[in-house]
Simulated assay, not measured.
Amino acid sequence: MINCEKKKKEFYKALVDKNPQYDGIFFAGIKTTGVFCHATCTARKPKYENCEFFLSAEEALLAGYRPCKRCNPLFYPNSIPQEVEILVAAVERNPEKRWKEADFHEIGIHSATARRMFKEIYGMTFVQYARSRRMGLAFKEILTGRKVIDQQFSLGYESPSGFNDAFTKIMGNPPKKTSISIINANIFSTPLGKMISLSDANYLYLLEFLDRRGLEKEIEKLREKHNARILPGNTEINTNLVQQLNLYFTKGLSQFTIPLLKKGTPFQVKVWDILNSIPPGQTLTYQEVAEELGNKNLVRAVGNANGANQISILIPCHRVVNTNGELGGYGGGVERKKYLLNLEQSMGKSQNGLLI
């Protein structure tokens, strides 16, 4: 989402003027209607405060917006293959659907064809598109539902049992057991994009970027493992998390004090503990982490443990790089990894050379 006020005003003027030069440059999310549009959409123009602007369709979908039927923002440029139109229409008929191979056969389109066409036109595969649309519905429920639950609590009603799990429609109900836990979901903005946190009164369970690949499966496994209902709502842990992240991104904090729930295998937890021991501004290679574990041949296993980390930034998997000096992979994307490393390396140093 675009946060720069100058750029937002530029895009809003283009939207009002229906400037064709901006078609494909940005997507405008309209809060009052829940749709996202191209600059040249002929619909009545919303007020400035009712607009959000995105540089990609995926961002708009993850924010919970659906494509406008009047300007068809996903049909840019106009020469969209018929297969793409069929697939977009199919998603809109059932946006919560989780697509399987049989679903493609049913409408007569090969999944590989869908993947290639969407990648060429939108820079994301069809599976990414469908997942973003699906997850955007849950994220929107979190963003809007949080206000309702906060209001309920302020009026003295303490039980959240009357509210639906934000992910029930796309993942089904968690397993029925005698003990059900409540985990609260919150979405907030950072300089690197929106993030979602899952926490209760005691621990932070998950912190991820909304567009992270595999996020849906991470949340699904978490719900099953803890037999949890995930409800919109804030917690003291999340409030502290947002405050500390704001300080971190403005170079005012390099060590976090948030209680983390590290749920993994004994090996994964050992890897994560080593990550937490890497000082901000420094890095280790996958090889060096393996050697600290006592076996230089565990490089691949270390990489897998890194990828299984569900608490971004606070468990700093971004501080692990390839032996040849290249950054290597990162669940939030290599550009974010580069940003975080540069941020930490530029933090102020005390007289003894330690990061503060």
Score class of each variant (00 low, 15 high):
Asn94Glu: 15
Glu96Gly: 01
Arg98Asn: 11
Ala102Lys: 15
Asp103Gly: 03
Phe104Ser: 11
Ile109Gly: 01
Ser111Arg: 14
Arg115Cys: 13
Met117Ile: 11
Met117Glu: 13
Glu120Pro: 00
Ile121Pro: 02
Ile121Gly: 05
Met124Gly: 03
Val127Lys: 14
Gln128Phe: 03
Arg131Lys: 14
Arg133Pro: 00
Phe139Arg: 00
Lys140Thr: 08
Ile142Tyr: 09
Leu143Tyr: 02
Leu143Cys: 07
Lys147Asn: 10
Asp150Arg: 13
Phe153Asn: 06
Leu155Ile: 04
Pro160Cys: 11
Ser161Tyr: 10
Phe163Thr: 00
Asn164Ala: 15
Asp165Asn: 00
Ile170Trp: 08
Asn173Met: 11
Pro175Tyr: 08
Lys176Gln: 10
Lys176Asp: 08
Lys177Asn: 02
Ser181Asp: 10
Ser181Asn: 12
Ile182Ser: 03
Ile183Arg: 00
Ile187Trp: 05
Ser189Glu: 14
Thr190Arg: 02
Ser199Thr: 12
Tyr203Met: 03
Tyr205Gly: 07
Tyr205Leu: 09
Leu207Arg: 05
Leu210Ala: 05
Leu210Ser: 02
Gly214Lys: 07
Lys217Gln: 14
Glu218Phe: 08
Glu220Ile: 06
Glu220Arg: 10
Glu220Met: 14
Lys221Pro: 04
His226Lys: 15
Asn227Pro: 05
Arg229Pro: 05
Leu231Thr: 03
Leu231Val: 12
Pro232Glu: 07
Ile237Tyr: 04
